[in-house]
């Protein structure tokens, strides 16, 4: 088992290194940081711009290969360089990673759990009212892009605030500036989390709900569920203990695939709700032409895929005895 994990780790590691390098080369080759500096008012002299770009390893007059070498050497020492403003990328990366995860983890967990439960429930009630409502809801949600969904939620919240006369919902930034007291501050932060979390949760919910419904329909008439009922289990119990438990196994792959993308999943949500996470940073950096920041975000995102894959392997092994035996043999 250990050997198998190590081999898998190495294989994926190579993939991540390649992906990171590719991202740097793409970013450095396509983006134009010089334009950003030259566009400043007052326009700095040519020599100053060049000196600044060289110091940041951004000058397009240096060959791409040598810029890549400098960057890669830095990355090997755990240093992603500096942003255009001269701030270290690392510190900003960690800070923003925290912001992104605080937003996307609760949203994804709520969305996927709800999706799995309601998807399974809809499958069991196939063709009945509950199934129709859930299926129609997930269909509609899937057709609504995140940026539209967020706008709709904002509109609904604004209407609710007006109707109640109190600002129950707040959504700009992570907190209201100048909110006094530790406890009030915490409540305020939670208040700001509601809408963006709901946005992420709803989007995830629709996806998982449809997957799980399909998987559950497949086991609904499985022979082993019939066997369980023939032994005297009621339909509900046979479906929960034998059907759902088995239908969950393929979901692991979806979970891990989605959690690998967790880091960047919040691009729209962050942008719209003004939360300064990785996704927002990525969009801004691309617009600004900030090569080092873009490359660092890409590396973080690619790295996130690595543990996600491993977790998926381990979880599948835990949930599915057939794989466990395969790994141990």
């Amino acid at each position: 088992m250990a050997g198998f994990l190590v081999r898998r780790l190495v294989g994926r590691g190579v993939l991540v290194v390649l992906a990171g390098s590719l991202a740097y080369l793409l970013a450095a080759g396509v983006l134009d940081p010089r334009a950003e500096f030259e566009g400043r008012a007052p326009r700095p002299p040519e020599a100053v711009v060049e000196a600044r770009l060289s110091a940041l390893n951004l000058s397009d007059r240096v060959p791409l290969a040598s810029r890549y070498r400098i960057w890669a050497r830095g990355v090997l020492h755990g240093d992603f360089g500096r942003t255009q403003e001269g701030e270290p990328v690392n510190a900003e990366l960690w800070r923003r990673l925290g912001v992104s995860l605080r937003l996307s983890v609760p949203g994804s967990v709520i969305g996927s759990v709800l999706g799995v439960l309601l998807g399974a429930y809809a499958a069991v009630r196939r063709g009945q009212g509950a199934d129709r409502v859930i299926t129609a809801g997930s269909y509609l949600l899937l057709a609504v892009p995140v940026f539209v969904l967020a706008a709709l939620l904002q509109m609904a919240a604004a209407t609710a605030n007006d109707a109640m006369g109190v600002r129950v919902f707040a959504w700009v930034g992570e907190s209201t500036p100048g909110e006094p007291g530790a406890f009030r501050g915490l409540v305020d932060q939670a208040r700001h989390l509601v809408l963006p979390t709901a946005t992420i949760a709803l989007a995830q919910f629709a996806l998982y709900c449809r997957y799980q419904r399909g998987l559950m329909l497949d086991v609904l008439h499985a022979d082993f569920v019939r066997t369980a009922r023939a032994r005297g289990l009621r339909r509900r119990r046979a479906l929960l203990r034998h059907g759902l438990r088995t239908a969950l196994i393929p979901m692991i792959t979806y979970f891990s695939y989605a959690s690998g993308l967790l880091v960047l999943s919040g691009v729209f949500t962050e942008k719209i709700f003004g939360r300064h996470g990785l996704g927002e940073w990525l969009v801004d950096s691309i617009t600004r032409g900030d090569v080092n920041a873009v490359a660092a975000i890409e590396c973080a995102a690619a790295c996130a895929v690595l543990p996600a894959g491993l977790v998926s392997d381990v979880l599948s092994g835990l949930l599915d005895p057939r794989l466990r035996a395969g790994a141990a043999a």
């Binding site: 793409l26 970013a27 990525l282």
Partner: peptide, 18 residues
Amino acid sequence: ADLLLVLPPFLVVALLAP
């Protein structure tokens, strides 16, 4: 295909398209 799956599509599309 695996390599492309590891690269966040959003990033590369955003880089190449503008």
